[in-house]
Design a protein around this nucleic acid. Structure first.
Lengths: 136, 136
DNA sequence: GTCCTTGCAAAGCGTTTGCACAGAA
DNA sequence: TTCTGTGCAAACGCTTTGCAAGGAC
């Protein structure tokens, strides 16, 4: 983990409980943009009393504090990621995995969008990932 | 409607029933990227026997045939739009409306994404829309 | 007759809420 | 004591499925 979780919590005024730490660490290490259920299933092994409610509680706290973000997807379930590194997303049509790819810069003409104040840009690419390319 | 719905259906090998026609027309006219429920509530006025199941059936047929697309959002409910005109999306943080904005072109270095074959690009801007800008 | 469209009812699934218990301050 | 973190159980909302009735051909 790049920045100490305890320090982040202190900054944000929340307590660094073991549950929160494990959820944060898992999100930080995990490359698969997990759903709440995936986080739960992974962590319940080492935290046997963990409940899904707690996962939801912690994720909603993290969202509020800006520690994590929800990724826009077509699906109804929500996927989460740590909001610390700028990047774009690539969705594979074959295996439906969601990959991180280097941040893509965009260019737009502000004159064509009068009055719209842009504070964030998200780029989502769709196609075939390297390993699926080989299979086809 | 730019292209005749009957003709599109003939091309795709599906029958242009009145229900399908109305759903297609509403999606085509509607600028708000409606959910299935919004489509239902709007159309049940003129089609009193309409059920939500039918709305879902028709949307899923349209998706399969490529007539409509699902828009990636943070929310759990799905939003639909006719897939005929290239454009990007703008989400207002204040009023949570989803706007169409002119298609934004992107530039990316393919060398940084070895093996990834991109077939589609989606750009999603977040910020404050013109009318909310005035209110603040 | 068959095939397709429609729609009621129920199930499914991810998420949120109500509430209570336990531990920390 | 109060406040906070946790978690069971139930409710909730959107979507999907099973199945049957009605219509087109």
């Amino acid at each position: 983990m790049a920045i100490n979780f305890q320090d982040k919590c202190r900054e944000l005024g929340i307590s660094p409980s073991i549950t929160r730490k494990k959820i944060y660490e898992f999100l930080d290490e995990c490359k698969t943009h997990p759903t709440a259920d995936e986080i739960y299933r992974k962590l319940v092994v080492s935290l046997p009393t963990l409940s899904k409610t707690t996962v939801y509680n912690v994720l909603s706290l993290f969202l509020e504090k800006g520690l994590v973000e929800i990724i826009n997807t077509e699906a109804t379930e929500k996927r989460y990621e740590i909001s610390n590194h700028p990047h774009s997303h690539f969705h594979c049509k074959e295996c439906h995995q969601l990959f991180d790819v280097p941040k893509i810069s965009i260019m737009y003409n502000k004159d064509k969008m009068p009055g719209f104040q842009v504070s964030k840009e998200e780029i989502y690419l769709i196609g075939i990932c390297p390993s699926c390319s080989k299979k086809i």
